[in-house]
Each structure stands twice: as structure tokens, then as C-alpha cells.
Simulated scan of single mutants.
Amino acid sequence: MQRTAILVDGAFFLARYRKVWADRDPNDARTVAKTVFGMALEHLKALDRPRESLYRIFFYDCPPLDKTLTKPISGEAFDFSRTNAATFRRELHDQLRRQRKLALRLGRLVDRGEWQLKRNAYQQLHDAELEWEDLTDEHFEPDMRQTQIDMKIGLDIATLTYKRLVDQIILVAGDAGFVPAAKLARYEGIDVILDPMWQGISADLHEHIDGLQSVCPRPA
């Protein structure tokens, strides 16, 4: 039987989720987890493949930041592990683990222990809509980034390809970080489809995939 694996970049999916399903509560972890599984089934349906052809869904994300930092303006201590965002992430990961045919792949969230100015605050300063002396803690965010995610996606693609576990891979992502692994899979005869959830992609990205398909509702 032909098999399909679906690989989901969690950070990208959650960012698009708020735009695609604007009528849903983005903090309802159970609904978000079910939506991931529902998208997988929609892809199989669109490709006219039976539900049994689903090999596995891989969801890549990072645990929330579990650290206390000192706010840049007020000097107050702020525990990131107690934020609503951290609570949601932990609940989401728990719900994802309960989904059938879904493997949760966790990377690391690395912070530098520093704060950086938010993009919109920088723009307000640039446009003279905000003065430096008017900055508050709310204008800053921690300087952090995800690590190991691209590596884990690449390793899974290589494993699926060389072990001939699937004949088709669907990537739910929006950037070119997966391109080297996708080129490897295509070279070995695997059908690679990109689902950018209706987000535009660069023109040269088309040459590294076999198809472009979004199955979620198209944002207005």
C-alpha cells in the first residue's frame, strides 16, 4: 500500500492557525490538536488516498521557556513558565501525544537571557510615534530562538526516504529550511508536497517540491 507521512512545523502551523481559523479559540489546545489530525485526513482525501495510507503525522515544536528573567524597564522578575502561552504549549503537547498516528518531536527553545525591542515598537520609534523615555516592559520581548527543529525534520525525511517507509511526504511549512532534505527525498523518488496554509512562497521554492496544496480554509 502507498503510504503518506505528514510533517508539521509547529511554530508555523500555530501562527497560521490564528489567521486561518480566526473564529476558533487559539488557546483551546484540544481543538488545535484535533485540527492537526483533521488536516492530515483532508490531505489524504484531496489526494484520493484511503485513511489507512496515513503512515504518521510528525509535529515539531519546542517546550515553553522555563525560566525567570528580569524585566528591562521595571526590573521586576518575570517567570515565563507561568504565562498563559507556556500553559497552552504544555497542554497542546499533551493533547498531541493523545492523537492517533501522531509523533511529537521536541526541539529546544534557547534564550540569551536578554530582551529585545519588539518590531512594532521599533517602527513606532522610527516614525517618531513613540519616544525612548516612553518605553515600558510591554515594548520588549525575550531574545530566544528554536533549535534542532530543522535538524529533526531533515533526519525524519532521510529516515522515511532511505527506509522506504513512505512514497509521499507532505510538509506543512512556510520557509526554505526543509529544501536540502526535500531535494534528497525527491532524488530518491519520493513525492514531496508543500502545504503553506495559503501563505505565499518564493518563486524558486517551487522547483524543490512536486506539488503545492493547502487544504485548510483560505483566509479572507
Rank of each mutant, 00 (worst) to 15 (best):
D134H: 11
L65G: 03
R164A: 13
T147H: 08
H139Q: 01
G75T: 10
I169V: 15
V172C: 07
L96E: 11
K71N: 08
G107I: 05
F178N: 06
I170S: 03
L104M: 10
L109K: 11
A173Y: 05
F58T: 02
N120D: 15
D167F: 00
R56D: 03
E133T: 14
I170Q: 04
V179H: 01
E131D: 07
F80P: 13
L102E: 11
F58G: 15
P142Y: 03
R100H: 09
L96W: 08
F140G: 01
I73K: 14
I57G: 14
L117D: 04
G154F: 04
M144K: 15
D137I: 01
Q116L: 09
Q116R: 10
I73L: 06
Y55A: 03
R108G: 02
L171S: 09
A128F: 07
D150N: 12
V110L: 11
D79A: 04
L130E: 00
P142H: 03
D127C: 00
I170C: 03
G174L: 00
T68R: 07
W132K: 10
F78N: 01
E114P: 07
Q116I: 09
K67I: 15
R108N: 13
F58W: 12
D167N: 12
E138P: 08
I153E: 07
L109I: 08
F80A: 11
R145Q: 14
Y162D: 06
Q99Y: 02
R97I: 03
R105D: 08
Y162W: 12
Y162F: 12
L117S: 02
L160H: 04
D137F: 01
R119A: 13
L92N: 15
